[in-house]
Amino acid sequence: MLNVFHNLEISHYIYLSTVLFSIGLFGVLFRRNAIVLLMCIELMLNSVNLLLAAFTEYMGDANANGQMFVFFIMVVAAAEAAVGLAILVMVYRNTRKTDVSFLDQLKD
């Protein structure tokens, strides 16, 4: 299985995670449902994680520094999801909506 790498270039992983990141960015810009926005942010974080793992393999780093960064990104993502969803539940309790385009009271 691991002989896959004989044909793989690092640029394939770069392009794959660029595409994933752009899809996540498109979702953040396009969608209005706040829960889907959070999911798109998770998608973007995951594309970065994939690239970090690819570069760890590419550099042949014995200390696996890139994979350590993936761990810490996962920690931050988990904390972000918990706090974000708690904020979302509170917003829903006050406004009965999760549509971000209605959350513009700070504008006035």
């Binding site: 691991l2 790498f5 004989h6 793989l8 270039e9 690092i10 640029s11 770069i14 392009y15 660029t18 595409v19 990141f21 752009s22 899809i23 960015l25 498109f26 810009l29 760890t56 393999e57 590419y58 042949g60 780093d61 014995a62 696996a64 994979q67």
Partner: peptide, 28 residues
């Protein structure tokens, strides 16, 4: 907007050249 990001990033990486993944190192 997302397409511009995609195009810009791929164009930036285009210059990095082709680098083949090395043989996998075990146990990392």
């Amino acid at each position: 907007a997302a397409g511009m990001v995609l195009i810009t990033l791929t164009a930036a990486f285009q210059k990095s050249g082709i680098a083949v993944m090395p043989a996998p190192s075990e146990g990392i």
